[in-house]
């Protein structure tokens, strides 16, 4: 999604108040943005804490500040700066974390971001975007750019099956239809399930929903989804995020508050460390987030 990100930001670069700060990342990706912004493109160096506080101060002076780094360096290292300097002041800084989830796969656990939106959404005045497809990025950047509050954008890699007609961006999108249980997948993971689900008979085919914006308080589930959950008395949630602080945990609370009686099956990122390293696909499988694991989970849910 980095190319789409760069294109979308270049489109905004005419705004005189826009500034972009990077933690020394973006080689072979962000050069067009650097050219478009000139001195408003600031390589803040390998100093993420300073970069985030600087961005807060710039937002406080009315500038439209964007901050970019590899996902864990964007939120974990400077967490206190995000908390104190950005969110405590309600400042609309846009934080972009590239390679969320297991996006940096074989690079190792220091580069994984599987607790990012859970950690950040404990803070006030912050919203998270997890674009599902590459095509979403332009709309997400526009929405994030207009946000009156801080934004965290978990950037990944769109993975729709070949030939899939990506629907127009929306915070919630239903990607498959059938008579099976509803499945909610957060971000690009949704695209990886489409083929496997489409191969199931229509009568038992799950209704796959892609979720791209958090938290639920700012993006409540659509009525159609809630009707499916109520009808089946069950829902499956898949996300490349640890269980604690997950979307599923928030959704479970939502179901309880709404008085919806449903079983919730959760597929989630199991660990930062595995006995062996591997790609994002490898690590998803190790966590039981691959399409085969989803089908097994659905099968067991529909047998109950």
């Amino acid at each position: 999604m980095r190319k789409q990100l760069c294109d979308a930001l270049v489109n905004r670069a005419q705004r005189p108040d826009m500034v972009f700060l990077t933690g020394d990342l973006g080689f072979m990706a962000l050069e067009p943005l650097q050219q478009a912004l000139g001195k408003r493109f600031i390589n803040a160096g390998v100093a993420e804490q300073n970069m985030v506080s600087v961005s807060a101060a710039m937002a406080r002076q009315g500038l439209e500040a964007w901050v970019y780094s590899i996902a864990p360096f964007c939120y974990a290292r400077p967490f206190e700066q995000i908390r104190n300097d950005i969110t405590f002041h309600g400042l609309p800084v846009r934080l972009i974390g590239n390679g969320g989830g297991y996006g940096y796969g074989v690079m190792g656990p220091t580069h994984h971001a599987i607790e990012d939106y859970g950690v950040l959404l404990t803070l006030p005045n912050l919203k998270a975007y997890v674009p599902v497809f590459d095509e979403d990025v332009g709309d997400v950047i526009q929405s994030a750019g207009e946000s009156p509050m801080a934004v965290y954008l978990r950037l990944g890699r769109g993975e729709p099956p070949r030939g899939f007609a990506v629907p127009a961006y929306a915070p919630w999108r239903q990607l498959t239809n059938g008579g099976g249980v509803p499945v909610i997948a957060v971000g690009p993971l949704a695209g990886t399930y489409i083929d496997a689900i489409q191969e199931l008979p229509k009568a038992s085919r799950p209704n796959l929903w892609a979720l791209a914006e958090l938290p639920l308080s700012q993006n409540p589930p659509p009525l159609a989804l809630m009707a499916q959950v109520a009808a089946h008395g069950a829902v499956c949630v898949a996300e490349e995020h640890v269980e604690r602080g997950s979307f599923a945990a928030e959704f479970a609370l939502y179901l309880l508050r709404e008085g919806t009686n449903a079983r919730l099956h959760h597929l989630y990122a199991r660990a930062h460390h595995y006995p062996r390293y591997g790609s994002q696909t490898y690590l998803r499988k190790a966590s039981g987030l691959d399409p085969g694991s989803l089908l097994n989970a659905i099968d067991s849910m529909q047998r109950l």
Partner: peptide, 25 residues
């Protein structure tokens, strides 16, 4: 008072960001 401070190590970055923002504007 522009910023809530109290955790040490934030203020100089906030001041530098403010100074650069004024300069850019």
């Amino acid at each position: 008072i522009l910023f809530a401070t109290g955790s040490l190590g934030h203020g100089l970055s906030l001041a530098a960001g403010t100074a650069l923002a004024l300069s850019l504007k």
